[in-house]
Design a protein around this nucleic acid. Structure first.
Lengths: 194, 194
DNA sequence: GCGAACATTGACCGAGCGGTCAAGCGCGGC
DNA sequence: GCCGCGCTTGACCGCTCGGTCAATGTTCGC
């Protein structure tokens, strides 16, 4: 593995990550070999192991980087908004629009959830995200704007709606983001009967 | 592969499916080899290929069988109930209790979703399930009991909540089914603000 | 008690995997 | 001009995998 990174090196690393993300998403993690990844870039196998200790490490880095990017988007979206219900709404919309622009990551994250190896990093990512949501929920419950139910379960419920609609409507179905986001928000805030 | 099946053969086949389901859930599909499955049963490798054409076919059969069983449970739960909202509620509760009793299938289904190979059978399973839900939703919309929004997206939203709460609260968290089901129903019917 | 069909064995195969490494390349500093 | 180091090469290694198959055991009906 490398010690330092010159600009040229950083570019190669990014290329490998992008290429790996695309192939993992298209064919799955196990069926994609390191040989496939370097072949797609037209370089030798050694290049891969210069930048990553293992195929496993590449996936881990992909998970960390994508979560970091998604969270930045969410934080930017709710910046300066005080109303907790509105913060939740904007967070949902930010998530959907991020996934609409990075569809390949959906499959990657889903796979990572099926392999114990990636449980730690995935759990950490989710914890952060759930904690953010819980904070807004608790604020809303105190204000009386949100029904007084277990905030942890509520947070997971919201994440479930976002995940499923991302998967079915954005990734598979290619529906317009705005339309999906509107229903997602309406469902989360008012339910079926609202 | 076999032609006919004697009672003895049927039992072996069931053993292989049960054993495969357990190992796939514990370690994942790719990391579990056919050799692992037959070793766990203490039989030769040829036995596996007598009952299944491939490892792939075993997973496919597991997906079909589990979905069939889950659907039976749902249909039994809503038998004789006319109110569409109540039917949805009972369907949600039936799903959660089924998964609580068959936790291993959650990981299997999640993995199958990451591999194109299993997309057809998974899509078919989901279509059936979503169609059931849509039927009740439309009935509810006609009655004015359910808000007039895209029933397909609503159905996916409900499935998302069920899936996520199954995964986080039942499989990982081991919370009591009843408690999770109550919140799941409340969230789906009334949302955060209800 | 024999023959047919069901059921089982486990050594074997070719392919492909993740990962290694000795050797070589190219560029900036001296 | 050449040294050092970041970077690249690709043949190679050990191993495991999914899948095959000829031989053999087991269970029936007749």
């Amino acid at each position: 593995m490398r010690r330092k990174l010159t600009p040229r090196g950083r570019e190669r690393r990014d290329q490998l990550m992008e290429c790996g993300a695309r192939l993992f998403a298209e064919r799955g993690y196990h069926p994609t070999s390191v040989a496939d990844i370097v072949a797609a870039l037209g370089v030798g196998k050694g290049v891969f192991y210069w930048y990553f200790a293992s195929k496993e490490e590449l996936l881990t880095e992909l998970l960390k980087a994508s979560n970091h990017d998604l969270r930045k988007r969410q934080q930017h979206a709710i910046e300066g908004v005080d109303d907790p219900v509105r913060r939740i709404e904007l967070g949902i919309r930010a998530s959907l629009s991020w996934f609409a622009e990075h569809r390949e990551y959906f499959a990657i994250i889903q796979f990572a959830g099926t392999d114990e190896t990636f449980a730690p990093v995935l759990a950490r990512n989710r914890e952060i995200s759930i904690a953010d949501t819980i904070r807004h929920l608790k604020d809303g419950i105190v204000d009386g704007r949100i029904a007084d139910r277990d905030p942890t379960l509520l947070a997971h419920a919201i994440h479930g709606v976002v995940a499923e609609l991302t998967s079915r409507a954005l990734v598979d179905g290619s529906m317009p983001v705005g339309e999906v986001a509107d229903l997602c928000v309406a469902f989360c805030l008012e339910g079926l009967c609202g």
